[in-house]
Design a protein around this nucleic acid. Structure first.
Lengths: 242, 242
DNA sequence: TTGACTTATATGTCTAGACATATAATCGTA
DNA sequence: TACGATTATATGTCTAGACATATAAGTCAA
């Protein structure tokens, strides 16, 4: 909940300068649009060289707290309220972080030529082979989420022979295909018969849906749909408005 | 969808060095754990001074793409799959971005001494005054979301006299209380009678719920619950696994 | 083998300069 | 007054050094 460390306990000068300025911005002493002191003024105030001041200001600019304009100076930016940091843990990590025991069960696994529906879901045009996986995650033996996943074998051929009966496909992919990009869509549905049975909830009960589409350098990797019973998921966002 | 700009079109040397390395990391040529060349090796390769190389590597470290260890070198980090960038636009921005007409309607506004429930929702202990606001957002005259908000007047006294009949409280707060922090919780519910009527959907239909709790320097600002009909919301995350 | 000490080395920070460049502000002119 | 050219200035990038410091690796003794 604290904003930043105090300037005093910064061991190095440029960090102290950065913390000084950051504190004034985050407390509102210097509101959005405020011009912060010029580099040469800070040089004088802190009795250091311009490169030291420049390093502090460059980092603040990289963190989008200030905007720097040639000849004009450096200005406090308005918070980017449209973006926030979302924390979606790997399901196993999510469950063990709660101090609960993690359980995993492979429900089904099929290797097949991509159907039209598969290609649509993966966003690819060419036909190819895919693995379709259905599995269930549980916490303390209680169903936590069901997962329905498609992996594009033309991008991840190893997935054809991977053993998903013990390791969840999400964890497996994490270790075999790092540094991917993803797009998430969140929505809500009511449980149908199959979902209700898989999650051990009533038909018609609310479910949270997270669809994740993952790619890497313009190659589709996987598409997954996660269904959670209507319980909440926590996210934490910093430096936003409203 | 493209990972980064090519190194060639970087106008300055340190940006070119940074882009060169970033590209090798993101394409997987240098996998997590890989030791990237030492500063003195890069100095030789690019024919520049160490400060220039250092600036490139420092920025990569600040972006969490690499980890730097004294005496050991610099190493490609594993992707932080547990965090992603969430884009939650201001509702008005969200609707206008879709090219639809935005509508706003204040349903109710009450100024009162905080009840026990209010204090619990705001996470404050001391009793004080609050404003409770209920309103509805629509897109092309169709209900888009209903909002139920509490503002702590001890932190935002101006909210007592603000006119929320024309400006949504979220937008008002954005302009009056910048640089806040927030925590989000997402969940799913089924619509009860009141919700169903407000959103013009059937009783029992699924709804997406976003609860947002906002503070600033250890002072609570506002708590809001947004209810959307079960339609999806898109988020975009970069550089994740799984 | 283990633990303590020493050494080598890569990064971390900083300096006092330099020239480049975008642009706000000024000045001059039509 | 409006527009175009000039100038001043803050930031952007870069250099060739310096010393500090954490720590991997090697050394030596118990």
């Amino acid at each position: 909940m604290n904003l930043t460390a105090d300037a005093a306990d910064q061991p190095t000068l440029y960090k102290r300068i950065r913390a000084d300025i950051e504190k004034r911005i985050l407390t509102g002493e210097w509101p959005p649009g405020h011009r912060i002191p010029f580099e040469h003024e800070l040089v004088e105030r802190y009795g250091c060289s311009r490169m030291t001041v420049n390093k502090a200001l460059s980092e603040l600019a990289q963190a989008d707290l200030i905007e720097r304009r040639r000849r004009a100076g450096s200005f406090v930016r308005r918070p980017q309220h449209q973006s926030a940091v979302l924390k979606i843990a790997d399901i196993r990590a999510e469950i063990t972080a709660l101090g609960r025991s993690y359980g995993y069960e492979l429900v089904g696994r099929k290797l097949r030529a991509a159907t039209a529906a598969d290609r649509d879901r993966l966003g690819v045009k060419k036909a190819g082979k895919v693995v379709a996986i259905t599995c269930r995650h549980s916490a303390d033996k209680v169903p936590f989420a069901v997962e329905d996943r498609l992996i594009d074998l033309s991008s991840v051929p190893d997935a054809a022979t991977a053993d998903f009966s013990r390791e969840p496909p999400g964890s497996w992919l994490l270790h075999h295909v790092p540094w991917t990009e993803a797009e998430h869509t969140i929505s809500a549905i009511v449980a149908d018969d199959r979902t209700a049975e898989a999650l051990d909830i009533a038909v018609g009960a609310p479910c949270l849906v997270i669809d994740r589409y993952t790619w890497r350098s313009a190659r589709t990797i996987t598409a997954v749909r996660l269904l959670y019973p209507g319980v909440s998921h926590r996210l934490v966002a910093r430096f936003k408005g409203g």
